[in-house]
Amino acid sequence: MHIVVTVKQVMDPIIPPSHMAVDASRKQVVSASGAPAVMNGYDANGLEEALRLKQVHGGKVTAITLGNESARNTLKRAVAMGADTAALLCDPQWQTLDSFGIATVLAAGIRKIGKVDLVLCGRQASDSDGGQVLYWLAQLLDLPVVSPIIKIEESGADALVVHQLMDEECQRLRVELPALLGISSEINEPRLPSPKGAVIATRTMIPVWNASTLNVGQVAGKVTIKALDIQVRTGQAEIIEGADGAARGRALADKLHQLGLL
């Protein structure tokens, strides 16, 4: 089984808005403290699941990223976690792609890889919160798509049984391979890179594929970001006072009772 995992490098999601900044064009968000970027959390779940499936079915796991040269760090981490190969899709003309554009490039990258049985994406990226690259990708590769997935059951080589998370329930579905799945965090706990993996990662050659390698022309986007605005919170709660915790607990109950909330 050859599994491709799409991994995006994103700003660390623990950074609060008060530590974010936008550039003058209001089109890019940066971390004001220069905190290092990380692998998108759901993509780490996708990679973990791919490694687990490989253990069961054998085969190979390839990680791909569309990003700038610094996104190589995320691919190195993917290799250190256990991905067999990786490729960085990088070209100056891809810097401002929308979801459809990103999917177009990722699709070209996956076609170059060759025969692929399963593509695992994250259910969404924690910077865009977009939740759509995976669906465009599925359309471009003509794969059945299901997301968000919280469980993959063991099954045969030509299909997977998956649990799709809905609002109140889960759908248990049998999906024919090849397929594309959007992975959610409930599915697993991603492993940390092992020391041995870290050594392998430094030795692994990660190729860069650009627009001419992939033969991708200009992509017309479907959505353009006009402005980004940071939502800084300035509010401050009214603090309930009291001699000790218990007194504050009682004072809180009194307050909420006065407000008619209890």
Binding site: P16, R233, T234, G235, Q236, A237, E238, I239, I240, D244, G245, A246, A247, R248, G249, R250, L252, A253, D254, K255, L256, H257, L262
Partner: peptide
């Protein structure tokens, strides 16, 4: 950060705050 969103805040260990809160609410 939650105190920037909250309308009312209690600073303290919930293990001390909640039991008294619960008893008091039961009284109401």
């Amino acid at each position: 950060e939650i105190f920037k969103r909250a309308d009312y805040g209690v600073i303290g260990d919930f293990k001390e705050v909640l039991p008294a809160f619960i008893e008091h609410v039961k009284g109401y």
